[in-house]
Design a protein around this nucleic acid. Sequence first.
DNA 1: TGCCCCCTGCAG
DNA 2: CTGCAGGGGGCA
Length: 284
Amino acid sequence: MPELPEVETIRRQLDTVLPGKEIKDVVVFKDKSFGGNSSSLVGKEIERVRRRAKIVEIWFRGWEKLVVIHLKMTGQLVYLADDGMRVVGGHPSADWVADLPNGHTRVVWDFTDGSKLFFNDMRIFGWMKIVDREKYEKERMGVPDVTDKEFDFKYLKLVLSKSGRAVKLVLTDQNKIGGIGNIYANDSLYLAGVSPVRKANSLGDREIRELRKAVVEVILRGIKFGGSSAADEKYVNAFGQKGKYQEHFLVYEKAGQVCKRDGEKIRRGRLGGRSMFYCPKCQN
DNA sequence: TGCCCCCTGCAG
DNA sequence: CTGCAGGGGGCA
């Protein structure tokens, strides 16, 4: 599902094609998927595309509002140039892109140059909404992204020391750290050699340092490989292509396979209603 | 802090 | 047909 690396991949791509585009029309197929008055977007020119944690932000020239988008688990943001299959700069699209809109398309933006932006979301958990610039900027204060320099040893230590919950639950708590979801939390904990069920406040300084390093490394690897499109996942990037990080999973979806560090079998368990993958031997 | 729920598709 | 998948909001 879209976590920071997937959302960042989409953001980077959209930021190469959307700035300068003017919105001609916004078609909302599913009311639940769009918050605000969609017609107020007509005539607006996109300035840039940014990201905060797992949220895509679309900023407009000279407008006091912006559009924020959360893909939740099955959301997709797909850009389609007016020439259909040939998208941009030699990025070939998956075949299905040519068939957009499809049965899961919830919102479509039509630009004056004929290109389009599709918001697809099978499970309708995601959303796209218009928010007030000032109010939004005030709200997003205080919680650093994994990619922010504020996410340092001191910060992670502070956050972990304040919680008696399992460390994996704290890592994925978006009110404490922005951007980590289930896949990257599992892989980070494995890389750091820390058990996902360890009480957050029981980690020592050395472990916290290792964990911070591992989280950053795993997230950056995720971005490098364009995010992950695991077995039953819907993630595709803004040009309709799958990610490649699933080819580099450390433990996620690897239950039964052998741990490269010690030969023990990777296990699957459940924690906080989510799957957890870990090596019972080298994660303590 | 923990648990239910939003929703759809698919495996069993 | 039931159960599961899961980000995160809401509510005990």
